[in-house]
Each structure stands twice: as C-alpha cells, then as structure tokens.
C-alpha cells in the first residue's frame, strides 16, 4: 500500500510517491484515479471520495438507522414521560390530563422529601468522597513505582465488575451477623446494624457507592496527571514551592478540565443510580435512603405510571443543568 501524504500538508515534490498525484501538475501519472474530485487540491478536509450530492446521500444513509432507533427509543419516550407525568395513566388505561396533580401529590410525599434531601446526603456526599479518594489514589499511583499497570488494574476492579455484583456484595458486607464488617468489628467487641437506622443506612449506601465508583475518578485523574510535564515540578521545587503550592499551581490546573468532565458524568450516573440503593436498602428504612430512580420504580410496581413519570421527570432540570455545564467545561467533544 502506498503511503499517501495527507492533503493538509503542503507536500513538497517527491517524484516517486503516488501521494504526489495530489499536487496539480502530476495528475497524468496517476491513471488509477477515476474520480476527478479525488485529485482536487484540498485545503480543509482529507478524503473526499464522492461528489457533494453523493456524499450527502451516503452520509444520511449511514446515520439513518441510528437516528431512527434513537428517536424511537430515547426521543419519543422522553416526550411521552413528560406527557404521562401530567396524566393519571395506569397500566391498561391511557388516562386523562390532570395538570400538576402528580407533582403536587409527590411534594406531599415523605418519600419524595427524602429523595430530595438524599440528592445531597447520598449523591452529593458520594461524589465528594469519590473526588477526594480518587484524587488521593491517583496521586499515589502517579508516584514512581514498578508495575504501575498492575496496580491500576487492581484499582479498576470495583468498577470493572458488574454493578449488581458490587452492590449485592456490599449488602452482604453489611449483614448484621454474617457480614464481614461486623466480623471485623467483633474483634473489638463491637457490633453495628448498618442498615437499621436512617443515618447508618445512608452512610452504608454512600460507602458502597463510593467503592463502586471511585476507580472511574482515579483513572480519569491519573490520565490527566500523567500529561503534566515532570520538569514543572522540578522547577517549582527548585523555586522552593512546597507540596501544597505545587498542587495548587501545577497539578490542579493540569487536571481541572478532566475533573470537571469526570465530575459531571459521575454526577449524572450517580443520580441515575438504581442498583446501589435498591440492592442494599430498597430505599429503607421507611424511606430514609430513597432516591428518584427507586421512587419511580416503586410507583411503577404499584401501576401508578403517572406519578412514576413525575418522579422521573422531576430530576430532568438537574440533568439539563449538568449537561449544559458539561458543554461549557468539557471541551468541544461535548458541545
């Protein structure tokens, strides 16, 4: 295969290569070229195999199946959910428009109140600890060491395994008698019923959620840290900058962009998380660990599609904000 030089380069003449066909005068040397567009001197885009009209049709043809699937399976349900949340639809009955009744009923529900406060007490706290732990472990793995790849593979484990396995495992860890935590506490003649009181249940869910999710932060932050030139640290050290100054002036600016992308994605997925709460507490005791996904699921199992939709919809503004923030901070990929 001849190695063609991309059209982006000004391509100095090099008589033997076929790439040369791309500069105007040598066209006759390249009989294999059939399409005139292929030899048009190009300035902006490489590889233009088709005429503009042709290209449009091919491109549309390529994306059409995906667009149709996404409109049917993501676009339509989102709109339908919004509509449902304003109706008293149930399984088997299309229902009628009831205005804000579902939302008003929701606001009067203790489970809803708990779900709102758990946005901070469970989701917010989990994210904060994931960030701190992720930063700490990433800094650890960024130190000089042998076999960094193996240590990174170890730290990925909680995140690589299926989520339901991680949370079933933690449910077992929290078990009153058989659980590993109580066996360890037993060495000190202590015993804790992790899932019995609201505060402990919340803390337990947070613990499991952090364990499952922090490797994502470690990988992201570590990848960013490794792009920071070592010379910067050496220079700063020679100038007498202490560890904290080195962090705030070198490390943090170097990882800030990655941290914001990781934070938004992690916030979206943690808020959207179902397994962490469902498998460990099912929202209990009473509704102390309730989150919106669990609330919505419980409404669905009671065949209350309207209020289930309202419980799902209520977090939509939050997601919109997070996605907009991602667009602002996350670079062009997310715009």
């Amino acid at each position: 295969m001849t190695k063609a030089v991309g059209g982006a380069f000004p391509a100095p003449p090099a008589p033997e290569t076929k790439a040369h066909a791309m500069t105007k005068p040598v066209l006759t040397e390249a009989p294999v070229i059939r399409r005139p567009t292929a030899v048009r001197p190009r300035t902006k885009r490489p590889a233009e195999p088709h005429k503009p009209g042709e290209r449009s049709r091919v491109g549309l043809f390529f994306v059409a199946p995906l667009v149709l699937i996404l409109l049917a399976l993501v676009g339509f349900p989102t709109v339908a959910s919004l509509w449902y949340s304003f109706t008293n639809v149930t399984v088997g009955s299309p229902g009628t428009f009831v205005g804000l009744a579902n939302y008003i009923a929701l606001f009067g529900d203790q489970a809803f109140i708990d779900a709102v406060s758990n946005l901070v007490l469970i989701i917010g706290v989990s994210l904060l600890i994931k960030f701190l732990l992720g930063l700490t472990v990433a800094s650890l793995l960024n130190r000089p060491m042998r076999a960094r790849g193996i240590w990174r593979a170890i730290v990925i484990l909680p995140w690589a395994m299926p989520g339901f396995v991680a949370f079933m495992g933690w449910k077992l860890m929290f078990e009153s008698r058989a659980g590993a935590l109580n066996q360890v506490l037993g060495w000190f003649h202590l015993h804790v019923d992790f899932l019995a009181s609201p505060e402990l249940a919340r803390m337990s869910v947070v613990m499991a959620t952090v364990w499952r999710g922090f490797p994502f932060w470690v990988i992201g932050i570590l990848a960013a840290m490794q792009t920071i030139p070592k010379e910067l640290y050496e220079a700063a050290e020679m100038d007498g900058a202490g560890p904290w100054r080195r962090f705030t002036n070198i490390t943090w600016p170097g990882i800030r962009a990655t941290v914001s992308v990781v934070a938004v994605l992690s916030a979206i997925w943690t808020t959207n998380g179902f397994e962490n709460v469902w498998l460990i507490t099912q929202g209990g005791p009473s509704s102390a660990t309730m989150t919106f996904p669990v609330l919505s699921y419980l409404d669905l199992t009671n065949f209350q599609l309207g209020s289930a939709s309202a419980a799902a919809m209520i977090t939509l503004p939050l997601f919109v904000l997070l996605i907009l923030w991602l667009g602002r901070t996350g670079g062009k990929e997310y715009k």
């Binding site: 885009r45 233009e48 088709h50 503009p52 290209r55 449009s56 049709r57 091919v58 491109g59 549309l60 390529f62 994306v63 995906l66 667009v67 996404l70 409109l71 399976l73 993501v74 676009g75 339509f76 349900p77 989102t78 339908a80 959910s81 449902y84 399984v91 979206i268 808020t271 959207n272 179902f274 919106f292 996904p293 919505s296 699921y297 669905l300 599609l305 289930a308 939709s309 799902a312 919809m313 977090t315 939509l316 997601f319 996605i323 991602l326 997310y334």
Partner: peptide, 30 residues
Amino acid sequence: LRFPGQAAVSKLILMSYLTPLILLFIPLSV
C-alpha cells in the same frame, strides 16, 4: 463524510448517551 445535519446527529448521540434510563422506561414498558 459530509452530510446535512451532521452536527445534529452527533449531538443526538451525546444527548441519548446522557439521558437517564428512568426517563425512558415507563413509556417503553407501555
């Protein structure tokens, strides 16, 4: 390739990727 609506499709993919499943599952179940 180049085709009309290219940027919109790219945006549609990202939006779908970030859309929480709890927004979708009720109409889908119906």
